[in-house]
Nucleic acid binder design. Structure first.
Ligand SMILES: NC(=O)c1ccc[n+]([C@@H]2O[C@H](COP(=O)([O-])OP(=O)(O)OC[C@H]3O[C@@H](n4cnc5c(N)ncnc54)[C@H](O)[C@@H]3O)[C@@H](O)[C@H]2O)c1
Ligand SMILES: NC(=O)c1ccc[n+]([C@@H]2O[C@H](COP(=O)([O-])OP(=O)(O)OC[C@H]3O[C@@H](n4cnc5c(N)ncnc54)[C@H](O)[C@@H]3O)[C@@H](O)[C@H]2O)c1
Lengths: 207, 207
DNA sequence: CGGTTTTTGAGAATGTGAGCACTAATTTTA
DNA sequence: TAAAATTAGTGCTCACATTCTCAAAAACCG
């Protein structure tokens, strides 16, 4: 199974594993069995073993997986072994929450630039990042920023996406509920909070 | 295929359809073909037809689907035909963004209560909702609130989840990156923004 | 009113992932 | 050193989801 293409669903789980392993690493644990990790994360042990086996032999039978080795490898697969700079567009309520959130750092992300069209917001400093005018977005190219977060109203999302692509961004995290169209080589992940909330009642038991 | 169980993946798409249909309805459109809807939403037409066919015959060959009828039916399936009141716990950056967001209303949600443990935040009014002390969470039962949103730091998420369940909540939207354990009949949907961002670099083309 | 176009709905084929069971490898223990 | 215990790795099966194809149904048009 080695050297296979990693299934999308497994890729989706890798950040979960990574967060758990980083936590264990901080506690100075050296290795862990798939069963213990399974109990810790609430994921079946065989699924963990299968996922890990997609990218090579890392476990030692009778012992488990070397945590540091695994962290390094998962980071490499997710391309998180190098840090990434992120540009945020839209410093409204959600955008400010993103700017203030320290939790992106464990994955090596640095929200290094922020833009807004509202002149009243330009110049404000949030978490050491100065909010620039949206017209400055083109200058991104020099900054080694390769990811963008869209937190503007839906009807502005497409034009911002176009601008980000033009500025050389390789991936976009989109919070707006609008579909955005980009060149095939650019990956877009959309988080639509209202939509996720909307499928919650479906699963409610009425009892 | 009528009266079949609807696959989870189809349920995940229903809110997308619903949003699109509500938009078209506002434009006074009466009916739409699966192909036009497909172009509009960026989803394949046969997938739309298959999803709709899970819950009955609604289309008219040669014409398409009646928009109002479809909206009503999708709402019923998602149990959105009755409005839902939502309790928010944690009025930090993300919580405040949720409170201020008007977009939940199209799905019939009303964020009707907010709680925080920080006394400095208690009593503040955000978007017509007064932030109450977390100790008041138990009183929820009288308020017909059936959904909860967790926007507290990860290490407090489990205790809040327990409190929400005790207060009679039927479903939880969890923004914290921690796993929370609840009785089987309670549905939890977790949105982990950092994790979604973390799998973006994987898809980056290095060209 | 009959032929043509549009469009649905369902079944078949294909692809993908989850779940399970078993094998093999390594360590621990007697 | 040999047996037992632990644990990783992988092949197999089943369920589910996507994709494709096509016949039947309805509307439209001349
Ligand atoms: N806040 C939530 O809970 C929530 C939930 C679901 C979806 N969303 C979506 O997330 C996005 C942001 O939400 P929000 O609550 O932060 O909205 P918001 O109105 O608070 O902020 C939007 C920000 O974008 C800026 N902006 C508008 N047009 C712009 C443009 N063309 N270029 C640059 N900046 C521009 C505005 O000045 C404002 O600062 C929206 O698309 C919203 O639909 C938010
Ligand atoms: N902001 C983001 O962009 C972002 C991204 C990913 C994940 N998250 C997660 O979302 C959650 C909230 O994030 P945030 O940025 O709003 O954090 P925040 O620190 O701004 O807000 C947390 C709020 O919870 C309150 N709180 C703490 N303990 C509590 C308790 N026991 N009961 C009630 N209230 C309590 C605090 O008083 C504070 O108001 C966190 O779990 C965070 O990890 C946030």
């Amino acid at each position: 199974m080695r050297y296979c293409k990693i299934p999308d669903e497994a890729v989706r789980r890798l950040p979960i594993y990574l967060r758990g392993l980083l936590f264990l690493s901080e506690q100075s644990k050296k290795s862990i069995s798939s069963q213990s990790l399974a109990d810790f994360l609430g994921i079946n042990s065989w699924l963990i073993r299968k996922d890990f086996s997609y990218f090579g032999d890392f476990g030692t039978p009778g012992v488990g997986y070397n945590i540091e080795k695994l962290i390094k490898h998962i980071k490499k697969i997710l391309k998180l072994h190098v840090g990434h700079k992120v540009a945020l567009v839209g410093t409204g309520n959600l955008g400010r929450a993103v700017l203030a959130y320290p939790g992106f750092r464990i994955y090596g992300f640095d929200v290094a630039a922020a833009f807004d069209s509202d002149p009243k917001k330009n110049g404000r400093k949030i978490n050491n990042v100065v909010v620039e005018n949206i017209s400055k977005l083109g200058r991104l190219k020099k900054g080694k920023i390769d990811l963008g977060i869209i937190a503007v109203p839906g009807d502005a999302a497409q034009e911002i996406a176009d601008a980000l692509v033009k500025a050389g961004i390789k991936g976009i995290l989109n919070f707006s509920p609008y579909r955005i169209i980009v060149p095939k080589k650019i990956k877009v992940i959309t988080i639509d909070i209202a939509m996720d909330l909307a499928r919650l009642p479906y699963y409610m038991r009425s009892n």
